[in-house]
Nucleic acid binder design. Structure first.
Lengths: 338, 338
DNA sequence: CTGAAAGCGCTTACAG
DNA sequence: CTGAAAGCGCTTACAG
């Protein structure tokens, strides 16, 4: 197998110095048109491609961005990746992805793994409150943007969905329908989305004391969804409406409802967060809190490009929408119907 | 921001030569115990971490594997990535992922992007018949393993599901129930799974001429599923059973059935391929052709490690299972019931 | 505008 | 077993 073409091969063929080849290839301004032409034809004839490792070693930059996500199979990330990659490619950067499996230690491992290979990071941390992660980020000598994550007492660039207003819209919709006992089953309380919803719900019904809203954080898993629903529906004063914090949690809620033979919205009103491929076949269509991942990917990439070009860090808010379909109805008021 | 610690800093601190530091760090056999100790303590004290770019440039290897997939959000890949990564990590390799968006040109782009940064590839090509991809692979000077892909007239390492036997089992099940007109709606005919199923179905009913099976290849999309189902159910001699080639195709089929108010299995028997999170809430539970992605990931990683360690290429077959749940029933025989 | 030289951080024959 | 030297492929002040 022949050694790949190097800058010296091109220099010899063009009859110029290696440094001139380098200047032409990397678009240095001070080159004569004829030098440019000779080098370019020689490079094309030889099929020269610069060695990225050598460039990176010398320049200290690799024109590559690293993306660390906790769960690659989350459909939300698919769109995010697509749009972030397009934006970065247009600016001359490539995107490399690492999957952290939702383990904070794995976040750090992958950041370390990528650190010497990339110029910057897009990070969807597994745990924004983890002390080790925080100190790893403090020592990180590359710019990064947090994806829907917010670390207390820091000013890192981040793109943050406005989960608070989405959940408030949903809860208010339920309250307006007459619900007085509403439960929200949410996931990991160590990430921004869950925290933002908690914060918003704390004050949502300050002026409506008759509305009782309880929030049950845990994990974004079917198991947490199912256990919590079981607990809620098995007890006194069961809620008349439930909000599921993610598709995974919704699966657990639906399992419980199926087992208990409860119907939506007759027996219980139901709201969910995010879309999923099969969701459309759930009957009735579920009220959904949703968001545009394309915007998110573009915004995140742009914030990182800003940092790479020396601009300052920024928090970028992004809206969240609520679509009340037909899965919410006035509660069965036992008192009245009795 | 201070320059990162280099091998010379460690050498100075330990009072030895840089070359000795290198030998200790990279585990060279000929080093005295005391040398080892001095270097290791100095390196630890300084927090030395080798520069991967420099190592890669010098050694020609990066201890990194590149994975190129057409659709990162496919849940099948999630498990694959998890197990492949574990196997590779155990052998001292890291895994980097690139998303090719299902475009053959993008496959090539990402292979080129990764080529200088990795020691080998795991490739799930968008199109195994693409001539440009074939020639790019021929010129690729790094080992690779094809993931459920097979390129004609080549002996590249690959892990191949036995889609043929899975689809035969499903089709035979339907035929045994009495179905005489069976349709399979499959996806992209330019990848091994679709081709393997076509091949198997061609001969599946050679000795049962009364069974008519037609296969409709297209794309792994809801749109192809919906249009084809519409075409089939709207025509003469509509099939009494349909096999959907993927979850995306299934979504299209189900949309059509919902619109036409057709029920499974009373009006039509239905079989699908692969699992999806929400699938369990489809009523009735669908007969499914399924497979173990963990085994797949481990096998793929192992084949690549074999190549990296100089062993020969290999085709590795993997079984596929058929679970007839309750979505298949004898066909409504209009002739008889009339 | 162009070339010769030094160096990015490491590894590896080569002496000793 | 250890060290000095060369070099992986590139870039970038420095002369001219």
């Amino acid at each position: 197998m022949p050694r790949p073409i190097g800058i010296h091969d091109v220099a010899k063929k063009a009859g110029v110095a290696a440094s001139s080849v380098s200047r032409v290839i990397s678009g240095h301004p001070n080159v004569s048109p004829e030098m440019k032409e000779r080098v370019l034809t020689a490079a094309a004839a030889l099929g020269y491609e610069p060695n990225i490792l050598a460039q990176g070693l010398r320049r200290g930059s690799t024109q590559t961005i690293g993306l660390v996500v906790p769960d690659i199979s989350n459909p939300l990330f698919s769109e995010l990746v697509f749009h972030a990659e397009n934006t970065l490619n247009a600016a001359g950067y490539a995107l490399l992805i690492a999957n952290s499996q939702g383990v904070p230690g794995s976040d750090i491992t992958h950041i370390k793994l990528l650190r010497q290979r990339v110029d910057g990071f897009l990070l969807s941390l597994s745990d924004e409150t983890d002390a080790q992660t925080a100190s790893a980020l403090k020592e990180l000598d590359k710019p990064f943007v947090l994806l829907d994550r917010d670390i207390a007492k820091t000013k890192y660039s981040s793109v943050l969905w406005d989960h608070g207003s989405g959940i408030k819209a949903a809860a208010t919709h339920l309250a307006d329908l007459g619900h007085r006992r509403i439960a929200m089953i949410d996931g990991n309380p160590r990430v921004h989305p869950t925290r933002a919803r908690s914060l918003a719900l704390q004050t949502a019904f300050e002026d409506r004391p008759e509305v009782h809203l309880a929030k049950y954080d845990g994990a974004f898993t079917p198991d947490h969804g199912e256990r919590t629903t079981d607990f809620l529906l098995g007890g006194e004063n069961a809620p008349t409406a439930i909000i599921a914090g993610s598709v995974q949690i919704l699966i657990g809620v639906l399992r419980c409802l199926r087992r208990r033979k409860l119907r939506v919205p007759d027996d219980l009103s139901l709201v969910t967060i995010d879309h999923a491929p099969m969701l459309e076949f759930i009957d009735p269509p579920l009220a959904t809190i949703d968001r545009d991942c394309g915007d998110f990917g573009r915004a995140a990439a742009q914030l990182l490009l800003d940092r790479l070009e020396g601009r300052t860090t920024r928090k970028r808010p992004l809206p969240v929408n609520f679509d009340p379909k037909s899965s919410c109805a006035p509660p069965m008021d036992k008192a009245r119907s009795a």
